[in-house]
């Protein structure tokens, strides 16, 4: 399994599903978000726990608080999705919370650039589990129209794991609602996306490999500072 986790992108759909199921059944593995201590103690089959799991999945799929998080163009359409005509709250998913500690879902609405990626990673890390990510727009899929830019991260998946991608530039509010509804459906059915290994992680500066750029920056950056290293050449 570990050899597969080193691959940046898993393209085989069935394999993704298999891995998700395996991860859920065996407890450990890539996705440990839904597995309770009880399940570890009782194993995966007892009736009560299965029902309880179903109930919990239903709960998580029926109601969610969103993080009030705007980045770029898509955030305007996201605001429209929350408000009058489209009213995402009909799906019990329209309560924007300003603090990441109280949010379940982060909608990533826009282009992520090098300066922002560490901050977004930080915000994501501050959210309590179980948390879900909706990538909104082409920029969160691949960098979209700005993919060739010197400063643009080639998709949100490079930084945080994404559960649902909503394509479009920007997606219409209807599309975002469909995306959120799909996410709720997936959660309610007990599927969540596998956590892929991300190329860009926050690290302490002195944990980085000693190479030319690290040496060059050594007197500017404190050893304990959190940094993100971008290897643009390896980016998709």
């Amino acid at each position: 399994m570990s050899s597969e986790r080193d691959r940046p992108f898993v393209t085989d759909d069935t394999q993704v599903q298999t891995e998700t199921r395996d991860a859920r059944m065996t407890g450990g593995g890539a996705d440990n978000r839904f597995n309770s201590k009880l399940r570890e103690a009782f194993g995966s089959s007892p009736f009560i726990l299965t029902k309880f799991d179903q109930f919990m999945n239903w709960v998580r799929g029926s109601s969610m608080f969103m993080l009030q998080f705007g980045i770029a163009c898509c955030s305007i359409e996201m605001m429209h999705t929350y408000s009058v005509k489209h009213d995402l709250d009909r799906f019990a998913a329209g309560v924007p919370r300003a603090s990441p500690r109280q949010a379940d879902v982060i909608i990533v609405p826009g282009t992520i650039v090098s300066k922002f990626a560490p901050r977004m990673k930080r915000v994501y890390d501050q959210m309590p589990e179980p948390k879900f990510v909706v990538g909104m727009g082409s920029c969160t899929i691949s960098g979209g129209p700005f993919q060739e830019g010197y400063n643009v991260i080639k998709g949100a998946e490079e930084v945080i794991p994404v559960d649902i991608h909503v394509p479009g530039c920007p997606p219409r509010p209807e599309a975002l609602i469909y995306g959120v509804a799909k996410l709720q459906q997936r959660i309610a059915e007990g599927e969540s996306s596998p956590v892929t290994v991300k190329p860009y992680e926050l690290e302490q500066f002195d944990d980085l490999e000693q190479d030319e750029i690290v040496e060059k920056l050594a007197d500017q950056i404190d050893e304990d500072d959190l940094v993100m290293r971008y290897n643009w050449a390896d980016s998709p």
Partner: peptide
């Protein structure tokens, strides 16, 4: 949604 909200919030990770 009252049930869902209550149970969901209670079952979240306590950071």
């Amino acid at each position: 949604v009252i049930v869902a909200d209550a149970v969901r919030l209670l079952s979240k990770e306590l950071v």
